[in-house]
């Protein structure tokens, strides 16, 4: 028998702590598969965030650094500047990257830092118990917007991929989704391109991944994936926001 699909060895055998149906597991696997396919396991360093992916170092079978909340792009910068031959990526959620770490991600892009960022947008704070994120949709109920996000009170959700794409130093920015298999396949291709961008020293690359948080959304895993399609994608359009890798 020929293997069509099996778990990549770039993921450890540790069972992930994520809730059933959480998109993080899918994205972890995609990142690990890309690292395996590019043959860069022995030189890739992962910088994991504070948030649900805080234990990422247990799952990625590579050297890892746990960064302070929002600071992964700065910490990754320090590492990449010391060992430019390493492939350095950050894996960050929307509280981490779009809120507390907004300055660090903007300036990593602004410097054209030769790192790769995987940004998980699930429109909520997961680890702390479902609070409102900068990416929470208008009207979406969270534990700190119990009546639904009111744009008069706290603005409209921030579109990170579009924002980063306006920065000169960003070489490749794409938004993808893991709501269905075709989109998962596209997401993997985008993540691969973002790593290739670093290998080719083209500049900063960011992939925003629309992902699910069934527990804090109060939905079943399948309903959560449907909600990405029905509610998130219309506000957060998928696609390449910037690509100068061929220039």
């Amino acid at each position: 028998m020929k293997t069509v699909f099996k778990k990549t060895p770039v993921l450890t055998d540790t069972i992930m702590h994520y809730c059933p149906g959480c998109g993080h597991g899918i994205v972890h696997r995609l990142v690990a598969e890309v690292i395996e396919e590019l043959g860069i396991q022995n030189k890739t360093i992962g910088f994991v965030p504070v948030g649900c992916a805080v234990f990422g170092y247990k799952y990625f079978n590579i050297d890892c650094v746990e960064a302070a909340h929002g600071r992964a792009p700065a910490a990754a910068t320090g590492c990449k500047r010391v060992n430019p031959e390493n492939i350095v990526f950050t894996y960050q959620g929307d509280g981490d990257l779009a809120s507390i770490g907004a300055a660090e991600i903007v300036h990593a892009a602004h410097r054209g830092e030769k790192i790769t960022t995987i940004f998980i947008n699930n429109a909520i704070y997961g680890m702390t118990g479902g609070q409102m994120a900068p990416t929470t949709l208008v009207g979406q109920k969270t534990t700190t917007s119990p009546y639904g996000r009111d744009p008069e009170h706290c603005g409209k959700p921030i579109r990170i991929a579009e924002m980063i794409a306006t920065i000169e130093g960003a070489a490749y920015v794409e938004r993808v989704s893991v709501d269905c298999v075709p989109n998962i396949i596209k997401a993997k291709a985008a993540i691969k391109k973002a790593f290739q961008c670093q290998i080719d020293r083209k500049g900063f690359a960011l992939v925003e991944v629309l992902s699910s948080c069934p527990t804090n959304w109060g939905k079943s895993p399948a309903e959560a994936m449907d909600w990405i399609k029905s509610d998130m994608i219309p506000y957060y359009p998928l696609g390449v926001k910037k690509d100068t890798t061929n220039e």
């Binding site: 699909f5 099996k6 069972i15 994520y18 998109g23 597991g25 696997r29 298999v181």
Partner: peptide, 20 residues
């Protein structure tokens, strides 16, 4: 049909797909 859609969407990487 060994399309591996199940494995590709599995968040916990628990599915292996093989074919002749």
């Amino acid at each position: 049909i060994a399309c591996a859609s199940c494995a590709r969407t599995c968040p916990d990487a628990v599915i292996t797909v093989e074919k002749e």
